[in-house]
Design a protein around this nucleic acid. Structure first.
Lengths: 133, 133
DNA sequence: CTTGACCCTCCCCTTACTGGAACCCCCATG
DNA sequence: CATGGGGGTTCCAGTAAGGGGAGGGTCAAG
């Protein structure tokens, strides 16, 4: 079960470049063949799968590093995992809120805009400081 | 009405660093005093206010550049402004959707996790490929 | 004359990769 | 034997939108 980077890429959905990057920053440590090719063992595959999913859920690389350490630590406390996750959830909520606020403002302005050949535009008025709302 | 960068910073809410950056990339072109200090006219102030608001609404710098050009073009068609805005709105919606999906998955996993001193953790199981859901 | 608040430029750092150049390795085919 | 294709390798540079900090000039007040 020794895989080349291309095989791992296919199985994890991560691009080869990304996998090399993850090695660069110390997230995985594949072995090397005599021809310098990276050799991935099953554990590397597990880690990369883990990383792929964690990244897809929006965790930062830094969070991933910590989660991975917990993943590999049989004596971990699930509270530590949950804390990272809760913090992340709060950030997600904050982002959603920000985006929804932007969306509300913009869709309001957009609705007012005729969107034709004339120059009059409530969107631009809203963006400049024309506070005649 | 000639302002230094600090004055402009206070009035627009943009940091001095940001204003210098905007000059760097050609969004504003303040004059220069004999001592090399930037001299901002009213038009610069307007532009920077515009940029500040547009950025706060999540437009990219590139969008801002185009919006600013339309803002200054008296012969613009409001349709052009509206198009940029609509595209941006769609991106915001896509991001909100992504974030909500992440949130759903993560909050589900998080609820299942005891968050105590024990190592068992459904979050980590979800992140590894343990598909025993 | 000195002090503190401004202002200037220049350069590196950030996140999480992505693209490209230049090169090596291995196998199959004509 | 040459060559072509499809792996792999390294290193360098760049992205968005600034942030941090060094090192130095300027201005107004006491």
């Amino acid at each position: 079960m020794n895989l080349n980077i291309g095989d791992v890429s296919k199985r994890t959905g991560l691009r080869a470049k990304t996998i090399r990057y993850y090695e660069d920053i110390g997230l995985v440590k594949p072995l090397r063949d005599t021809n310098d090719y990276r050799v991935f063992r099953e554990i590397d595959l597990h880690k990369l799968t883990f990383l792929s999913r964690a990244r897809a859920l929006g965790f930062t690389i830094d969070d991933c590093r910590n989660l991975l350490a917990l993943y590999e630590d049989e004596t971990r406390a699930s509270a530590d995992v949950k804390e990272i996750t809760s913090k992340h959830l709060k950030e997600i909520e904050a982002k959603i809120n920000d985006l929804q606020a932007m969306h509300a403002t913009l869709s309001h302005l957009s609705k007012e805009c005729a969107g034709d050949h004339r120059p009059d535009c409530p969107i631009l008025e809203g963006l400049s400081g024309d506070d005649r709302r």
